[in-house]
Every structure is written in C-alpha cells, then in structure tokens.
C-alpha cells in the first residue's frame, strides 16, 4: 500500500494548493487573524456571497436614490416619445405610452423590493413569534399551531395567493398581507424544530429552575440561538417573494398596474408583438429581476455557510 503511494504520487488538488499558500503566508509572518467577527470573515471569504452583496447594494441604492439618477417621472406619459429604443436620453428606451423605462425600473425596484423584503420580514415575525413559543412550550398549543401551518402549507403557494387575491382584491397592502399569510409556515417550522432541540439543553433547564417565565426563556434566551437560520430564511424568502410578485404582476394580478413594479413593467410582454419587436421593454427589467434575486440567493447561501457549521461544502 505504501509502496504504491510512493510510486504514484497523489494528484494535487485545489486543497493542496490552498494549504501551500497558507503555509507560505505563515512563514512570511503574514498569517495573523484579521480580527473581527468570525462569521463576518467567513462570509466575506465567500466569493459568490460578496458578489451577491455588491449587486444587491448597487440595485438597492439605485432604487432608493432614483430621483438623483433619473430626471424622468416614471408615470409621466409622453405621447411624442412612444416606443423609443434605448438612447442617451432614455437609457432603457420608452414604453408604449412614452414613459421612460429606466426610471420605471428604478422606481419599480422600490416597490418590488418593499413587497419582497416587507413580506419576508412580516412572515418571519409571525413565524418566529408562534414557532419559538409553541416549540418551547409544546402540548396542545404546539399541536394546534402545527396543524394550522400544515393546512396553509398544503396549498400550492401561488394557488393560495391567487385565491386570496380574488377574495381580497388587488392592492399593494393586500399583496404584502397575502404573502405574509401564505409565507409564515416555513419559518415557523424551522423555528419550532430548532426550539425542540434547544429545549433539551442544560442552560434551559437551569433557567427554568431559576423560575423564569416561559416567554422570557423562549424569547430572550432561546431565540438568539436560532438567529442565524432565521436570517438565512428571511433572505431566501425575500428572493422567493420578489419572484412571486413579478409573476403575479406579469399576469396582471399582483400590484395594481398604476404603480410601477418590476412585474408590472413586464406585463406588456404578454403581447407577442411587444415581445418580438420591442425587446428593450422587457429584457432589461427581466435581467434586473434575475440579477437581484440571484444576488439575494447568493447572500442567503453565504449567510447559511457562515452561520451554520454543519452545512459545509
């Protein structure tokens, strides 16, 4: 066995190269701890996550500072400039009613990101509030919450969303409400599962023997231990909600058409003539949505790798 190992040197892998580099740095006396949070360093070492963070920040800042970046009003109809292709004046061209598409994409980003992030945060709040407490306490409360979440989660999400849209009607607030209502199940289950394992820890037993109240133990002492997965979950569900909003608005059933959102801009691409001849109306927006969701997903994966030591590779 050893002979063959000597006779045939092991193929060098990427890890070998990495170790060599680390050794070289150590010998040169450069290998010092960068200091700061270990999680943060780990996140910043993840190339995809950093790329994601950059794309995310660029799109987010561009949307937030839209009035500085574009002189056009996203809703101003200009019948003289209908369907212009991209030019220096209109970077992304104009749409069928002569509205500047670049400014529509920027202002639309505000609404789309608001819907995605807002729904994700609200859903997380509900999921965490229910999941942490019922997971810790157990008993009939836990069973009840579990059954309710099972009912919500057995609906295919888009079907439930559309059903609620048809009952409640279309509006921005309703959409966030509906997304929250349909999306809390995932994070609830995650929190509950985490609490079930944390419940057996000794520090929880100690706290209980001190006579601390149950909500205090659950929310103040156990919840921080689940923060990592919660952050990951919020990130990933933001991405999912932005995709859903885009899909619904594309169908004309999401945010009312008078408010610019990424999906609403894409709505006109259902027309085959627009699709074929006026590519600038839908291609840039679609790319922006894809890039944004991609960046959020990269960040989410990076966060998961950085906060959860069991998820390596």
């Amino acid at each position: 066995m050893t002979e063959s190992a000597i006779a045939k040197p092991r193929r060098r892998t990427r890890l070998d190269a990495q170790f060599d580099r680390i050794r070289a740095r150590e010998e040169a006396g450069l290998a010092k701890s960068r200091g700061g949070s270990r999680t943060l360093n780990k996140f910043l070492n993840n190339r995809l996550a950093v790329i994601g963070l950059i794309i995310f920040s660029v799109i987010l800042l561009a949307s937030l500072f839209a009035p500085l970046l574009t002189p056009y009003d996203p809703n101003k109809i200009g019948l003289r400039d209908m369907l212009q292709s991209p030019s220096w004046e209109h970077w992304f061209g104009t749409d069928r009613t002569g509205r500047d598409l670049f400014s529509r994409v920027l202002y639309g980003g505000r609404v789309s990101i608001l819907v995605g992030l807002g729904s994700a945060i609200f859903a997380a709040i509900i999921g965490v509030l229910i999941g942490v407490y019922t997971g810790y306490v157990g008993g009939w409360l836990d069973t009840l919450a579990m059954r309710v979440s099972e009912i919500f989660m057995s609906f295919p999400q888009i079907i439930l969303v559309l059903m609620l849209v048809s009952i409640l009607g279309q509006s921005l607030v309703n959409l966030i409400l509906i997304f929250t209502l349909t999306g809390w199940g995932g994070i609830y289950r995650m929190c509950r599962a985490r609490m079930l394992s944390l419940r057996e820890e000794e520090y929880v037993l100690a706290l209980r023997s001190f006579g601390l109240s149950r909500p205090l133990i659950a929310y103040k002492h156990m919840l921080p231990n689940a923060l990592g997965p919660i952050m990951v979950n919020i990130t990933l569900s933001t991405a999912a909600f932005i995709l859903q909003e885009a899909g619904l608005s594309f169908l004309g059933l999401g945010v009312p058409l008078s408010i610019p959102t990424w999906g609403n801009i894409l709505n006109v691409a259902q027309d085959i003539r627009v699709l074929q001849t006026n590519w600038w109306i839908w291609l840039p927006v679609g790319t922006v949505i894809s890039l944004f969701v991609l960046s959020v997903n990269f960040i989410g994966d990076g966060l998961r790798d950085a906060t959860d030591p069991t998820q390596q590779g």
Partner: peptide, 17 residues
C-alpha cells in the same frame, strides 16, 4: 442558482423569442 433565480415566465419569454 441561476435556475432558481430567474423568473420562469422570463425564461418562457426568452424561449418564445
């Protein structure tokens, strides 16, 4: 990651085009 990030209908539009 790209596969789960790009909206399906956008794929559809590009495919049709």
């Amino acid at each position: 990651m790209l596969g789960v990030s790009i909206p399906e209908f956008f794929f559809g539009l590009v495919a049709i085009l």
